[in-house]
Design a binder for these strands. Structure first.
Lengths: 250, 250
DNA sequence: AGCCGTGTGGGTACAGTGTTCCCAACTTAG
DNA sequence: CTAAGTTGGGAACACTGTACCCACACGGCT
């Protein structure tokens, strides 16, 4: 995201010793000196790759090819693929820092939840990683901290109750995003568009409906109005916030 | 679960033709005739294996070894590993059929949500699978149908709103269970007990706290009372149901 | 009674995975 | 100009899912 200007650690940087600079730049053909292999560069390439092709495509060899570097050179910067996933998680959680709190718990929790959802949708692998290993990096902690602070305004200072509230919101957001991402993932995996997928489901759905064993489901499929994920999330989040207000709040 | 008694399709079963039965049982050493390889047996073994050793251990070769049969014989009953996962999902969703509805939406939705959570906790791989591919098997549909029916009592017959409500509850349940399972999974992966894990986190947590950048998180760690997952789920579910009551209800 | 087509079980092979061990090459210090 | 040491990367190992193909046992026919 932030274009970090990487300084070349060349001889010019040395404070004294007027070396013949012109000659330095005329070095063999060795390229302008390969940038050092850093965790940052590895994580950046990994996030781009996972965004574009999914977690399955994120093999160490593919990452190395994208950086580019040798496969096993990665292991000098990163202990394992798992650790790389953790670094990626924290990196993307830091892309958009949480806005400063307004003091109104409902506004603040709404904004934080929406931001979390945005991150989960922007990187569809994020949910899968976070539901496997706990996110403990600084960016993750910052988000948790701000959310707790916002919830404390709701629970009138009770930190235990604030923790409960944060868990409840977090669980809902994670669950909702997971379902939305699952649908995308299915389309990608089967390589179909939404219409094609729906069409391929058609015959089976008809049999299900014809069986008469699922009357409510049938009504749902036949009668119910279509709801977008955005609408559903908006409704769900309001519902949860209403519940929290009733339970803890004023 | 249900101990299905599988009939041996031996020659004895053939109605006529008094074959010399004694000789049949004295066949080479070919065993008393191997049970036929069925999807059922494969799924059963797969569920057991995934429960015991996790999804990562569920390779086709391991499954075949457990059944037992040859690896590639599995592909005659099951098209791919993905399809096997779908079959496993529906199998475990059918283990405990949903109780008949009482008519009180709150009681019914509570029971259905609790049952769903129980399934997700009983098989810790279930959440990961369901958040990758949509569950469309008969047992899954039955659960969805019953939940929709229960929610329809809340929304006074509006099936669109009932669909919303079901999504919201489902998302919360899935999110909560995912977090609980993630913790278990982490312990298993690192091969530590909860205390060991906490201890290994200690130094890092102290640095985090000492940094002073996460005041609310620090309060949470230092002051907040411990909440079990069961307590949290109970509180969260009540909160969501409260919210639904306020939004749709009477 | 003998035979033959059919379908089931399974071995081999291929392209890929994460990771460890080791070595070569380049940079810097003296 | 040499010595030390850090960094990059190749080869190998024990795995993975799955396509292809081949034996073999059984049911129905002649």
């Amino acid at each position: 995201m932030s274009a970090m200007a990487i300084e070349e650690p060349s001889q010019q940087a040395s404070p004294d010793g007027d070396a013949p600079a012109a000659l330095v730049w005329n070095r063999p053909a060795r390229a302008p000196r390969r940038r050092a292999l850093t965790v940052h560069r590895i994580v950046e390439a990994s996030v781009a790759l996972a965004d574009a092709e999914g977690l399955d495509a994120l093999s160490m060899r593919r990452v190395a090819a994208e950086v580019p570097t040798g496969t096993t050179s990665l292991y000098r910067q990163v202990a394992s693929r798992g650790e790389l996933l953790e670094l990626m998680t924290d990196a993307v959680l830091g892309e958009v820092p949480p806005a400063p709190l307004t003091g109104d718990w409902r506004t603040d929790l709404h904004a934080l939840a929406t931001g979390q959802r945005a991150a989960l949708l922007r990187h569809d692998w994020l949910g899968a990683v976070m539901s496997t290993r706990p996110a403990l990096g600084p960016n993750s902690l910052r988000r948790i901290d701000r959310t707790l602070a916002a919830a404390t305004a709701l629970t009138r200072g009770d930190i235990t109750l604030a923790g409960e509230a944060v868990s409840i919101i977090g669980d809902y957001v994670a669950g909702h995003a997971a379902r939305e991402v699952a649908e995308r993932e299915t389309l990608r995996r089967t390589g179909t568009t939404e219409e094609q997928w729906r069409a391929s489901l058609g015959p089976y759905l008809h049999r299900v409906i014809a069986s008469g064993e699922y009357p409510a489901f049938t009504r749902r499929v036949v009668e119910a109005a279509e709801r977008s994920f955005d609408e559903l999330f908006a409704a769900g989040l309001e519902t949860v916030l209403d519940g929290l207000a009733a339970r803890y709040g004023n």
